[in-house]
């Protein structure tokens, strides 16, 4: 687990502007996360944890500092380069699953692979493998409306891992789930980290979910408060 840093943040800052008023959200974040790490970002509402996750995932741009993830400095990439980078290195898991309702589970998982030059047969193999990993082989032809919340989130996890990215980012992945399903998703993510060596950065309010991570990073009013190693 003590690999080279996969995420390096130096003086990272993010501000939003409302007319001429600057609203700082993150200030001077210095952080290194090693490859294979499992980190939970925690903190009260407005502390900047989701903003930090968005910056690490390359879906938002910092207003200051340096951001190096998976060996790429993201600051200088244009929109298309950033999109290509995300498709290669990052898998996303959202609180509300965010599956495309008109596509089957199989087709949802296949989406990231459409961006690759993979053949149809190769895509099928990869999708079936990912769905088997989350235990939904039998449900691949079902539409999201035909699945439970827990199953939808499993499909989302399969979609996140199908392209074999180095980094998984999860924003409140258990926020919309009951306790049982939340535990199953957490166990699944723990397995991805432990068995497949995926680096995971997860935003959560839930101390039980955070307990599954190996480290907890606490943010307070946009600054890094402390990093705790989780003892299990």
């Amino acid at each position: 687990m003590s690999g080279e840093p996969i995420i390096r943040l130096r003086g990272l800052a993010k501000s939003y502007y409302r007319e001429s008023l600057e609203i700082p959200v993150l200030q001077g974040i210095d952080l290194e996360i090693p490859a294979g790490g499992y980190y939970a970002l925690m903190g009260p509402s407005g502390s900047g944890k989701t903003t930090l996750l968005n910056l690490i995932a390359g879906i938002d741009r910092p207003t200051g500092g340096e951001l190096e993830v998976c060996g790429h400095t993201l600051n200088g990439l244009d929109d298309d380069e950033l999109a290509a980078w995300r498709s290669t290195y990052v898998g996303f898991i959202f609180q509300n699953y965010n599956l495309v309702p008109v596509l089957t589970a199989f087709e949802n998982v296949e989406l990231p692979l459409l961006l690759t030059p993979m053949s149809r047969r190769a895509r099928r193999e990869k999708v079936e493998e990912a769905l088997a990993h989350v235990g939904l082989t039998e449900w691949m032809e079902h539409y999201p409306r035909q699945l439970s919340g827990g199953q939808e989130q499993r499909v989302a996890v399969a979609r996140a891992i199908v392209g074999d990215p180095e980094l998984l980012v999860a924003d409140e992945p258990t926020g919309a789930l009951d306790h049982k399903n939340a535990e199953e998703i957490m166990a699944l993510m723990e397995g991805l980290n432990r068995d497949l060596g995926k680096t995971i950065v997860m935003v959560t309010h839930d101390p039980k979910a955070a307990h599954h991570a190996r480290h907890q990073i606490h943010l307070e009013k946009g600054v890094l408060d402390r990093t705790i190693e989780v003892n299990r």
């Binding site: 929109d79 298309d80 999109a83 290509a84 995300r86 959202f94 965010n98 495309v100 990231p112």
Partner: peptide, 15 residues
């Protein structure tokens, strides 16, 4: 809106 943002997040280009 959200669905389009998800597609872009997973790597679909604007074009």
């Amino acid at each position: 809106t959200t669905e389009i943002s998800v597609l872009r997040a997973i790597g679909f280009r604007t074009s």
